[in-house]
Design a protein around this nucleic acid. Structure first.
Lengths: 335, 335
DNA sequence: ATCGTATAGCTAAACGTTACGACAGAGGGT
DNA sequence: ACCCTCTGTCGTAACGTTTAGCTATACGAT
């Protein structure tokens, strides 16, 4: 592999001049510049970013730690973040914690060792704020889920609003008994969504029945069980609010288990849209997160920190969701 | 940030000894070893991988270039590759070409500049073999799609077999007139799948009607148009073989456009399974690629090259698909 | 002519590691 | 007592850049 010395020798100049022409960091006469450029071309030379990083003290690498790359939400996030960072001259170092809380810390250490210039973290669990803070010596922005006790920029969906939008639409369709499949209690997001559900209910003057809320992990099978237990309630809910896309699958399966037709027998609205929802049966009515906006916001915030352009105390940015009306929400069945 | 010098000073030894204890590269007496370890602990020291990389000439970074991270096939690939490489001590540098052919080269250059130890490339287009070869100075393994003129390890689905499995099942169900929505001609994969389709047809003694094969991009909308043109044939096919998951969506939409019921009026079998297929209507009968096996194979192959364990000439590994029977394949309609 | 000043380009010192060879001391064989 | 070998530790060059500071040249003002 050609080094800057080879280029310098071939062009008959010093390495300093080569560096100056590459980085536009000092005036170089047209004569020398063109000689250098020719040499670079013929040698197919590209500066060694490792050496450059060592000298400069920054790597142009950004760590991206997501909780589950398999979830289309994170996939879209990764895509947008990557595109945005790439256009700013940064490359993404990706890891996937697969929802294992301890990997947040592990990968943060990894990122630190690789001397990334900053990290975008979609935490897999909302604890360990202090631990994360201790390890995050580089700029850090949180996305999707907050971490209590961690002072950092944070970009997220307006979760209460999302729940309100969903439950509001359900109420508007005429439902009075609305069950909720909530996420795990440990997830602040999940709690915020359930808070939004309760707030919307009481605002409409509807009673809040604890029996109509069941918590479970963001997983298909658990949501299926949860839906069954909810459907066993007496009287059974006529509509279900589901807090996440994976859980929606479980819920739909539970309905199928019981031969219930959605939306004729029961309505369902969930948070998180996904590609191909149109091919589902029924096509689900959902709350769509503005993933691109969230991702761009997070990337820009981090970039501003990394370049030093931003030095303000950390803030939180909430993004507004959107209701996508499809077929899974209808009026309650006449009895 | 603490450097190795700080550790050495605090432990009262030389940097060489610190390096030796960290890397187990020479005998260090228990006495010194424990002093060094204590110093590392109190300073919260982690070796600078940039400096280490510069010295060692390797970065423990592996580039992963995929054609479309939004496609669940690539998502699963990324996840498995990342997990595999991580357990071997490597970190993934991810980029997404989003099917732009010129980005293959661009990102290859980027990876080269970052001095990755190797690259796994899922090419977005099957041309430019020579260009890629010229740029790929590091070990490279190709996955999913071949690149003619590029000598490299290659891991892929057995595409003719996949098509054979699909078309075989269709024939077995009693169909005689089977349309095919093929991928773009430029993609060798797509061609291989269509080859498999033809081979299977002639093996069964069925005529090959060129009017029943239509090529289009791996996109939903194009596939929808293609399906329409196929359904206009006279006599119309009673079953459709679809070469890719995205195209399946378009095909299903075309059926919906015409009020056709699948599988009662027409059967469909496609290549590529995806999560949540169970929530579709109808649940699609598909050919499932062994993504995990492909990803692991690719990662292991690359690792073997990177560590120098493997020095054999490049080979191609074909992985066998599996037929997943669901609801979109039935007998042809009685006329 | 002389001097001062601006400036193009060069030399060399970092950046934080690793690893090669040197070195000092211990121990054993003669 | 001497030498040789072995071994644990150390000094330091090198990896490929960037950049601070220096040199030499040119040119304008005096």
């Amino acid at each position: 592999m050609a080094t800057i010395k080879d280029v310098a020798r071939l062009a008959g100049v010093s390495t300093a001049t080569v560096s100056a022409t590459i980085n536009n960091t000092a005036y170089v006469s047209p004569e020398l510049r063109s000689r250098v450029e020719r040499a670079i071309d013929t040698l197919n030379y590209a500066p060694d970013r490792i050496a450059r990083s060592l000298k400069r003290g920054r790597t142009n690498l950004i760590g991206l730690i997501v909780a589950d790359i398999t979830n289309p939400f994170f996939t879209a996030l990764v895509q947008t973040v990557e595109r945005r960072l790439e256009s700013a001259g940064y490359t993404v170092l990706l890891t996937d914690t697969d929802q294992h809380p301890e990997r947040d810390l592990l990968y943060l250490e990894l990122m630190k060792a690789h001397r990334v210039d900053g990290v975008i973290l979609a935490p897999s669990v909302s604890t360990q704020g202090a631990e994360i803070a201790r390890r995050a010596t580089m700029p850090l922005v949180l996305v999707d889920r907050p971490v209590p006790g961690l002072e950092a920029d944070f970009v997220t969906l307006d979760n209460p609003m999302a729940a309100g939008l969903a439950v509001g639409a359900i109420i508007e369709a005429g439902h009075r008994r609305i069950g909720a499949i909530a996420g795990p209690r440990a997830l602040i997001n999940a709690e915020a969504r359930i808070e939004g559900y309760r707030a919307c209910l009481s605002e409409a003057g509807l009673p809040i029945d604890p029996a109509l809320v069941v918590h479970c992990d963001f997983r298909e099978e658990e949501a299926r069980q949860a839906a069954h237990s909810l459907l066993d309630a007496d009287p059974a809910p006529t509509a279900l609010f589901v807090a996440n896309n994976l859980m929606l699958l479980g819920v739909m399966r539970a309905l199928a288990d019981r031969g219930l037709d959605c939306p004729r027998d029961i309505s369902v609205v969930s948070i998180d849209d996904f590609p191909w929802a149109d091919a589902f049966n029924p096509r689900p009515t959902v709350i769509r997160q503005p993933i691109a906006a969230i991702a761009e916001n997070a990337a820009d915030l981090l970039l501003a920190r990394v370049t030093g352009a931003r030095d303000a105390p950390p803030t939180t940015r909430y993004h507004s969701p959107e209701l996508i009306r499809r077929d899974s929400l209808g009026p309650p069945p006449a009895r």
